[in-house]
Amino acid sequence: MDHAALEAHIPRLRRYARALVGDAVRADDLVQDTLERALRKFSLWRRGSDLRAWLFTLMHNIYINQRRAERPNVPWDETHDTPVRGRQEDQLVLRDLHTALEALPPEFREVVLLVGLEEFSYAEAARVLGIPPGTVMSRLSRGRERLRRMLEGDPPTPLRRVK
């Protein structure tokens, strides 16, 4: 096993986990759980395939399992530290963006973070989330539109369930 290759992905895993859970301590726990599972299951990784995508898939699955075990909609506690540039306006923008991301349904938030923050391609995000690329594109479009509306002060439109 090449530990250096695994370690090279830790900063991106931490960033994605922090954006996903909204809390530095929980994010570090999620990264640790991901790395622990990666080390235990490393024999399942196919040499020559994308290690980053495999790690993000592991993290996504762990996050989903943890979310199912927790009570839904745990509110973000503003006492947690958030990375902020020096100006108050920037802090307000980050707070609003974080609040808007938290308000997104999880299926939209995951796609927005993978494609927008982690720069995954649609195909990579689809593999990580286990959904078709068309679904990634749809969720990304709808997620970005909902974020834009929330950041402009418009209330989000409720989701319709189509069966």
Rank of each mutant, 00 (worst) to 15 (best):
A103W: 03
A123R: 05
A53P: 02
Q88N: 07
H60V: 05
P75W: 04
G143F: 01
A126Y: 01
E110P: 02
R67P: 08
H60S: 10
H98G: 13
R68L: 11
L97A: 11
P83G: 09
P75T: 08
L97E: 12
V74N: 05
D77T: 09
A53Q: 11
L97Y: 07
E70C: 08
L94W: 07
L114A: 05
T135Q: 09
G143L: 01
M59V: 08
E124I: 05
R127E: 14
R67Q: 15
A69W: 02
L113D: 10
E119T: 14
L129I: 02
V74H: 10
G86Q: 10
W54F: 06
G86L: 10
L97P: 01
S121W: 02
T82N: 05
R127M: 03
L129G: 02
T82H: 15
P75Q: 01
L55P: 02
E102C: 06
H60R: 03
L140F: 14
D81C: 08
L140K: 04
E145R: 13
V84M: 08
R85A: 15
H98N: 11
T79D: 09
H60G: 03
E145T: 13
F120L: 05
G143M: 03
V111H: 01
S121C: 07
A103F: 03
R142E: 09
D90P: 09
R67N: 11
E70G: 04
A100P: 04
F56R: 01
I64R: 14
R87Q: 12
R71N: 10
A53K: 05
R85Y: 13
F120C: 06
R142Q: 06
M59F: 01
T57I: 00
E89P: 04
T79E: 01
Y122P: 07
E102I: 03
D81T: 13
M59H: 03
P75M: 03
E124H: 04
G130S: 01
I131C: 04
N73Y: 11
N61K: 11
N65A: 14
F120E: 07
I64L: 12
R109I: 11
H60P: 03
A53Y: 01
D77Q: 10
D96W: 04
W54P: 03
Q88A: 15
V128I: 11
L92Y: 12
V115I: 07
T57Y: 00
T79K: 11
L58Q: 08
L92S: 09
A69I: 06
T79G: 02
A100S: 08
A123V: 09
A123W: 00
P106S: 11
